[in-house]
Design a protein around this nucleic acid. Sequence first.
DNA 1: ACTGTTTGTGTAATCGTGTGCACAATGTAT
DNA 2: ATACATTGTGCACACGATTACACAAACAGT
Lengths: 332, 332
Amino acid sequence: MSGMNRRRITSKELAKLAGVSSATISRAFSPDSRIGSATRDRILAVAREHGYQPNAIARSLNNQRSRLVALVVNAIGNPCEAEEQQLLVHRLQARQLLPIILCCADHSDRLQLMRLASTYQVDHVVVFSDMVSMQDAVDIFHTTKPIIVSFEPLENESVSSIRIDGAEAADEIIDKIVRDGKKRFAYLSGTNSSWIDKLRRKWFADALAKRGLAFEAQAFGDYSYDSGFKEAVLLLHRDKVDAIICGNDVMAIGARDAARRVLGKNTPDDIAIVGQDGIAMAAWDCNDLTTLSLDHVAFIDAVVELIERHDAEVEGPHSITLTCTARWGSTA
Amino acid sequence: MSGMNRRRITSKELAKLAGVSSATISRAFSPDSRIGSATRDRILAVAREHGYQPNAIARSLNNQRSRLVALVVNAIGNPCEAEEQQLLVHRLQARQLLPIILCCADHSDRLQLMRLASTYQVDHVVVFSDMVSMQDAVDIFHTTKPIIVSFEPLENESVSSIRIDGAEAADEIIDKIVRDGKKRFAYLSGTNSSWIDKLRRKWFADALAKRGLAFEAQAFGDYSYDSGFKEAVLLLHRDKVDAIICGNDVMAIGARDAARRVLGKNTPDDIAIVGQDGIAMAAWDCNDLTTLSLDHVAFIDAVVELIERHDAEVEGPHSITLTCTARWGSTA
DNA sequence: ACTGTTTGTGTAATCGTGTGCACAATGTAT
DNA sequence: ATACATTGTGCACACGATTACACAAACAGT
């Protein structure tokens, strides 16, 4: 029985074994279907005995629902995204939905990648990545009734979106740093110019403007520790800033290490460093990061909510807004 | 054109538009197929115009290859696995293969999860997780010609495996720690009793035995920072150990923080701490971990190698052995 | 006993492609 | 000019399930 490399049995073959038609086999596996309970039990028994399970590919072709969900992400190696991905995958699996991961960061042709995934007739698409344009995603997944969940709202499209508001929390954080006497601020972006990045930067820029300040310098990394480290060295040495707002937590940790190791400056006295995302790692004792935090569970709840509305055929695009909070550590 | 919620066009409909039969459409999309190049060009043009792409579900049903790969992992949130996953996903995508992720850590019924994935006729299965037994995986994915790649070798099955040898590196590390004067060792496991965990523990246990020593204490975590922190407090306080070998790097960082914060002990003078995996984070300036490291690229190279052998229909199970190296930091 | 409803099952069409076979058209060798 | 190999295309079936429809059996109500 174990490990035999035999071909998977088909519904028709099982039908012969159980002395019924293949239609009845199908009905035995559809929860609410007109079928005698005795017949069903017998079929399920025979099925278990022969290791039969309905072919999901054939089933998907027939009823136009694949139970596959495409997750468009930057990377799965970066903890900043990974925690949310983990939560979402968990929720999807609980609903018998299977996630297909599309990693954009290291793929040269992201559109081709999305096109490939779209041919699998995925039921839903969740775009986390800020490396693809929403418009491209909408165009490629135009099929059936896709919902695209993302930060970026597209007003005139049938796309649901989750909006993030961190203005207030950013204001709190800037307030504290200014009161601590810091004067020269820098923003360290994660991407060259994504919608998300611009939005986040604006929260802090507005908070600075309110106090008659502005970013003295701007640098661009790639959401990695190394880029945070490298860019921070430049910002601190060349631009003489004393506060760095980072596009995510991982870069903030890199920046903190750079300040300490290369420049000999410590947080929060010599320099203030702020992260964004509020990942678990940021709260580790060795990091203790001040960060603009988003409630991951609430965020994924919102994603699932949108997916469910979509499944329930609720009309029109939907939008949910979430608010960030400041999480205080010893770096600012 | 953009974002219209229209139904996806089918091969037969496109055939009508292009004035050919649906068979010819199919051939236009199969690279090596007897078809006039003029016809193909015309078809591809019409296809692009109408946004046609062959339905991968139907294609999979027909030719028995789904181009889907199941990745059975513990979690995607944990950096220790995520880096390898990221590399593998990248390599798969380059081959036009799509990964389906199965997260075992938070799913109550892992067998049911694997059964679900197996109904999608995945072409390959890669088992990273140590939370499912190999035998279960083999039984569930018995279909067609699956290859299961994993640490655990199953001699009498048609299963390919990757074996990891860290004995020598563990010996080096233990040697250094013993010469530094440490006497009481503890092992902090990641899982209660997985094959991988036992193997790793044995490398260090053997190295200790060679020097007339043994583990004085043993604890069980769950590969997370918090569990590393919590268990280390117990090990240090209750069991008075002065060296902790951890099942992965994240727990090692947790243990290091616990020693410093709760007990006021520093590495490597008061206590030695060793991780395993060699993730990027371990080398960050703030961590600088001594760890039993596996070359991630070589590991994923091996996985891809096995997948390719399988695609090429090379007979029989294969096995590749990789060797770990010691990566020195300031924690031991 | 007769009509009408409910229940369980089989038949056959369908989902969208890929491909073996047949066949026409074209090219090539004698 | 005839025979034969090659190329390009259409027809029809297969892949493995779901489901509308038909129909027999069982059952209810008067």
